[in-house]
């Protein structure tokens, strides 16, 4: 299992073998507040890095979730449909959004590691 990487939009991504799992960070779920709805991409959809491909809604507002890297959506977390609060209670594990087959795993290198993301949060 590789290390977790982070985007400036507060998504995390972690490559396990050939498949990368995407979710939002603890900072993101705290800022959103109680999540009440998640719209997930269709399995099979081809996404490019930075493309809006999911929606997360709290009581107050809707926010886009962006693909951290390019690839093909191979799985989505159906548990979020019935229990969107998993995004709040377990953002880095059970609250994952979707899984991607990267078109170029090297794109991960451009993302922040945990230390860099923590430093980035300090600047906000």
């Amino acid at each position: 299992m590789s290390e977790m990487k982070f985007t400036k939009d507060h998504e995390w991504i972690r490559l396990d073998g050939d498949v990368a799992t995407v979710g939002i960070t603890d900072h993101a779920q705290t800022a959103l507040g109680d999540v009440v709805f998640v719209e997930l991409p269709e399995v099979g959809r081809i996404v490019t890095a930075g493309e809006a491909c999911a929606v997360v809604e709290s009581v107050k507002a809707a926010s886009d979730i962006y693909a951290p890297i390019s690839g093909k959506v191979v799985e989505v977390n159906h548990a979020l449909s019935d229990n969107p609060g998993l995004v709040n209670t377990s953002p880095l594990a059970d609250g994952w959004f979707f899984r991607l087959e990267p078109s170029d795993a090297a794109e991960l290198e451009a993302l922040m590691d945990e230390t860099a993301y923590a430093a980035y949060l300090e600047t906000l």
Binding site: V36, F37, E39, E57, V59, A61, A62, S81
Partner: peptide, 10 residues
Amino acid sequence: ILPEGRQPAR
């Protein structure tokens, strides 16, 4: 207005 499903309409 009551929307069907779970997605809030703003």
